[in-house]
Amino acid sequence: MASAPDVGPVFFPLDEELGLLPGHLALRQQEHLTHLACFMPFEKAAQMLETLLGVRTTKETARSLTERMSACMEVAYAADNEAPSFPPLTDQPAPQRYVLSADGP
C-alpha cells in the first residue's frame, strides 16, 4: 500500500484576499484583543476577551498580536509623516467667491 505524499505548507489565497491574519482569532477578535492589551496586562486582556466574547486565547497570543500591531502602526506613522501634508501649490489664482452649504435639520 502506497503512503500519502508529503504535503508542504498550505496556502489559502482567500485568507490573503480577505486580509486574514495568522492565528485562531478572527480579525475583529484580534482587534479587540490588541485594544484590551493596550490598557491592561496581556494575561488580563486574554481573560477579558474570554469574559466579553467567550473567546479563549493566551497571554502569549495577546503579547504577539499587540507587538505585531505596534510594529504596523510604527510603519504607518512613519509613512504618514513622510507624505506631504498639503497639496502642492499651483499657479492658478484663488477663486473670487466661495460657496458654503449646510445640510441638516
Results as ranks from 00 to 15, higher is better:
residue 3 S to H: 11
residue 3 S to Q: 06
residue 4 A to K: 08
residue 5 P to F: 03
residue 5 P to T: 04
residue 6 D to K: 15
residue 7 V to Q: 01
residue 7 V to D: 00
residue 7 V to S: 02
residue 8 G to F: 00
residue 11 F to W: 09
residue 14 L to M: 09
residue 14 L to T: 13
residue 15 D to Y: 10
residue 15 D to T: 01
residue 15 D to I: 02
residue 18 L to G: 05
residue 19 G to R: 04
residue 20 L to T: 01
residue 20 L to P: 00
residue 22 P to I: 11
residue 22 P to F: 06
residue 23 G to A: 01
residue 24 H to A: 15
residue 26 A to C: 08
residue 28 R to F: 05
residue 31 E to H: 02
residue 32 H to Y: 10
residue 34 T to H: 04
residue 35 H to Y: 12
residue 35 H to S: 11
residue 37 A to M: 05
residue 38 C to M: 12
residue 39 F to P: 05
residue 39 F to I: 09
residue 40 M to H: 08
residue 40 M to Q: 14
residue 40 M to T: 13
residue 40 M to E: 15
residue 41 P to D: 14
residue 42 F to D: 01
residue 42 F to V: 01
residue 43 E to P: 02
residue 45 A to W: 02
residue 45 A to T: 05
residue 46 A to M: 06
residue 46 A to I: 02
residue 47 Q to T: 14
residue 47 Q to H: 12
residue 48 M to N: 03
residue 48 M to L: 07
residue 48 M to V: 14
residue 49 L to I: 05
residue 49 L to F: 03
residue 53 L to K: 08
residue 57 T to K: 03
residue 60 E to N: 08
residue 60 E to D: 11
residue 62 A to H: 00
residue 65 L to V: 02
residue 65 L to A: 02
residue 66 T to E: 01
residue 66 T to S: 13
residue 66 T to C: 14
residue 67 E to M: 14
residue 68 R to L: 00
residue 69 M to C: 06
residue 72 C to Y: 03
residue 72 C to F: 02
residue 73 M to W: 00
residue 74 E to R: 03
residue 74 E to W: 00
residue 77 Y to R: 06
residue 78 A to E: 10
residue 80 D to C: 07
residue 80 D to W: 04
residue 81 N to G: 09
residue 84 P to W: 04
residue 85 S to H: 09
residue 85 S to D: 11
residue 86 F to M: 12
residue 87 P to E: 09
residue 87 P to W: 04
residue 88 P to A: 12
residue 90 T to P: 03
residue 91 D to M: 11
residue 91 D to E: 10
residue 93 P to C: 05
residue 94 A to S: 06
residue 98 Y to R: 15
residue 99 V to T: 15
residue 100 L to H: 06
residue 101 S to N: 05
residue 101 S to A: 09
